[in-house]
Amino acid sequence: MDLMFFAHRSHLAHVDTELAKQNLGRAHHRVVYFLGRHPEISVSELLDVLSVTKQSLGRVMRDLMDRGLVSGRVGERDRRQKLLSLTDKGRALENALFEHLRSNMANAYQAAGETAVTGYWIVMQQLMRAEAREQFRRLHSRQ
């Protein structure tokens, strides 16, 4: 547990600093991350993935939309559905925030080697509840 705590804290330190400069926090970070990885995700899917209330997500989304980082459009098949994406400005923020994280992960993977990385993926998936593993699989099957 200590390893996870200190690794997580260190891994996100740069992102936390950059977010703070813009008066943004971890909730904004999570939304920007998932919209960057899954453009045109529906509000309901995002609520499900983040496991937050509609009210909580609403505050963060209003902030991101007011800043011109996120846009939403009505679904083509279901007009009740709202599909969310990053704007060009949002993608620039996502790239700036996650460039460091991607580099950090790549360095760690390279230092650990293929066998350790495979083991890491197994450990991480086994730490997830069954419904989280299913969400993970669903999200990654769309890519």
Rank of each mutant, 00 (worst) to 15 (best):
L50R: 00
D16V: 11
E40V: 02
E134G: 08
R79D: 04
R67W: 13
T115M: 07
F5H: 09
R62C: 02
G75Q: 06
A111M: 10
A116T: 11
A96E: 14
N104Q: 11
M128P: 07
L84K: 02
G119F: 00
G90T: 01
Q81S: 10
L46E: 02
S42C: 00
V52W: 02
S44I: 06
Q126P: 04
R80I: 06
A96M: 14
L139E: 07
I41S: 05
R9K: 10
A108R: 08
N23L: 11
V123N: 10
K82G: 00
Q125Y: 11
Y120G: 03
A111Y: 10
A27Q: 04
V52D: 02
R142L: 13
M61C: 02
L57K: 07
R77D: 11
G90H: 03
Q135C: 04
M65K: 07
S56P: 05
R62M: 05
S141T: 13
H14K: 12
D16S: 07
K54Q: 00
R77V: 02
M65H: 05
E134F: 14
L47H: 06
F136P: 00
V60G: 01
R80T: 15
N23S: 15
R91I: 02
A106T: 14
K54I: 02
A20W: 03
D16K: 15
V32P: 01
V117W: 04
K89N: 05
N95M: 09
F136S: 06
G90S: 00
S141K: 15
R79T: 13
L35T: 09
R102G: 14
D66Y: 07
I41K: 00
N95W: 04
K21M: 01
V117S: 01
L93T: 05
